[in-house]
C-alpha cells in the first residue's frame, strides 16, 4: 500500500493524547514558521531532534520522510544565493552569490526541517482515524472530519483499483511513452478509476445506511487527559513560549 502511518512502537510520545499532539505540533509549526532569528531556529531544530529521541523514531524512517520535504529547498539553494542583494561571497561566472542570500536559504532549510521533524514525530506517528476524532474534538467542523475519514478510506480503494488497472494494462503489453496513445490510455485509466471507485463508494455508503448510519461516526478509543499529557503539554507550551520570547527580544 502507498499509505502507512508508522504506528511504530509504544513510546512515551506515541501514548500521548492525540489532541495534545495536534495542539503542540500546530503551535510549534506556527511559531517556527514566523521566526527569523538563528538562535530560535537552531533551538527549534534541536528540540525537534530531542522529541525524535524520546519518540524513538528510527533514523532511517525519519530521513526517508524528510527527503521530499527538501526537494523544494534544494531547488531554492540553486537560486536564492544569487538573487539576493548584498555582500558578495563567491562567484560562478557572472553569477555572484551573496552572504545574505546564503544565510536566507540556510534559515529556510533549518526552519523547514525543524517543523517537519516535529510534524513527523508527533502527527505522522498517530493513526489517521485517531487524528480525525481528535480534530473533531478540537472543534474542526463535522463535515470536514467526515470528508477526511471518507477520503482516507477511498484513497485505499482507489489505489487498489489503480494498481489492478495498471496490472491489466501491463499484461496487455502497455508501455508508457511520449505519444498520444499513452496519453489517451492514461486518461481512460483515470476515467475508469473514477467510475469504479464511484460504484464502490456507492455500495459502501448504502451498506452504511443499511446499518443505521445517521451522520455520526463513533470512536472506539476514548481520549482522556492523563497526568503525563498535562506535563507534556505544559512543558512544550513553556518551551514554545520561550522561543517566542527569544525571537521577540532579539528583534527589539
Amino acid at each position: 500500500m502507498i499509505v502507512k502511518e508508522f504506528a511504530a512502537g509504544d513510546s512515551l510520545i506515541q501514548r500521548l493524547d492525540p489532541r495534545v499532539k495536534i495542539v503542540v505540533a500546530t503551535l510549534f509549526s506556527v511559531v517556527v514558521a514566523v521566526s527569523t532569528q538563528w538562535v530560535v531556529l537552531v533551538l527549534a531544530l534541536a528540540l525537534g531532534f530531542c522529541i525524535v529521541q524520546v519518540a524513538g523514531v528510527p533514523m532511517k524512517e525519519l530521513i526517508r520522510r524528510l527527503v521530499p520535504v527538501n526537494g523544494l529547498i534544494t531547488f531554492l539553494w540553486f537560486f536564492l544565493p544569487f538573487t539576493f542583494e548584498g555582500e558578495s561571497l563567491f562567484s560562478i561566472g557572472p553569477l555572484v552569490a551573496t552572504r545574505e542570500g546564503v544565510y536566507y536559504v540556510a534559515r529556510i532549510s533549518i526552519k523547514s526541517n525543524a517543523i517537519m521533524v516535529v510534524l513527523i514525530t508527533l502527527i505522522a506517528s498517530t493513526s489517521i482515524f485517531t487524528l480525525g476524532h481528535a480534530m473533531y474534538e478540537l472543534g474542526i467542523p463535522k463535515k470536514i472530519t467526515h470528508l477526511f475519514f471518507f477520503t482516507y478510506r477511498y484513497i485505499h480503494v482507489m489505489h487498489h483499483e489503480y494498481l489492478r488497472l495498471v496490472n491489466a494494462m501491463k499484461i496487455r503489453g502497455f508501455r508508457p511513452r511520449t505519444n498520444m496513445h499513452t496519453y489517451k490510455a492514461l486518461a481512460y485509466l483515470v476515467g475508469m478509476l473514477f467510475v469504479k471507485s464511484y460504484e464502490r463508494a456507492e455500495r459502501v455508503y448504502n451498506a452504511m445506511l443499511c446499518r443505521g448510519f445517521r451522520g455520526r461516526l463513533y470512536s472506539l478509543s476514548q481520549f482522556s487527559m492523563k497526568t503525563i499529557d498535562i506535563i507534556f503539554l505544559i512543558l512544550m507550551l513553556a518551551v514554545i513560549l520561550g522561543l517566542v520570547v527569544l525571537e521577540w527580544t532579539r528583534i527589539a
Partner: peptide
C-alpha cells in the same frame, strides 16, 4: 460527503499517476 470524498481521493491518487 461520500461522493465528494471519492473525488478528493482521486485528487490524491492522481498525484501518483
Amino acid at each position: 460527503i461520500p461522493s465528494v470524498g471519492i473525488l478528493s481521493a482521486a485528487f490524491f491518487v492522481a498525484s501518483l499517476v
